[in-house]
Design a binder for these strands. Structure first.
Lengths: 112, 112
DNA sequence: TACAATAATCCGGTTTTTCGGATATAGCAA
DNA sequence: TTGCTATATCCGAAAAACCGGATTATTGTA
């Protein structure tokens, strides 16, 4: 039950839901998250750490860059919640807008 | 997205998850929730108000008593989350223990 | 009407969470 | 080595959430 509560705490913040929405289509680097959500670097990093600590996302290091993606081997509950969010977040106004921005940024290849 | 965040905030507290677990088998009155979770009256009432405000539960008045149950006409997202929680909460230690206490209390018919 | 019982709301104080600038760490390049 | 970049962590302050006793509101009953 404690783990369950921790999981929902991690999801109980708009910024973190927006980050998860960005990760639905694949891994994204921190610099893109900062740019799209207009977050200070420390804030972006902290929210990502909270999601990672909850077992919702994982990171991959590539030199000085850090790429985040949805956790592949997450708990069954986390997996179900991510699935539900995957159906829902892209249909919200902010979620769709963020994903659109990410799509544009990927075409420009600002940060590969 | 704001509604989504509010929904997860409502779920991000152990007491409220325990209350939802108790409601999985049907409506429960406030006095039983107080007794089983050992909560002061104001605390129980406040958590129930948060769940109701999030659209997760609804109340039925019967004289001076208030009976709470899972919301029948909740949003699609809330419905999915309740479904996931319905599979998960009863399998947790605390959840199972609480449900057991409720079952015993209902047999004694302390508070019909 | 007066009183008892149930539950919602109020109030203040405490705890938790969040924030962003500053600092620390690690990798890459000159 | 020196410097630059990307990211994580630290720190103090601000905001939000939580708590439970006290009060209020509503209903049922004598």
């Amino acid at each position: 039950m404690k783990n369950t509560t921790a999981l929902f705490k991690a999801l109980a913040h708009q910024t973190r839901l927006r980050i998860l929405c960005l990760l639905l289509d694949g891994e994204v680097c921190v610099c893109q998250i900062m740019a799209i959500l207009s977050l200070p670097q420390s804030t972006a990093s902290r929210h990502l750490a909270i999601l990672k600590n909850a077992g919702l996302v994982e990171d991959r290091r590539d030199g000085t860059w850090a790429h985040y993606s949805l956790a592949r081997n997450c708990s069954p509950l986390a997996g179900q919640l991510l699935e539900v969010l995957g159906e829902h977040l892209p249909h919200t106004n902010i979620g769709a807008e963020d994903c659109q921005k990410l799509s544009e940024a990927l075409q420009k290849k600002d940060c590969a």
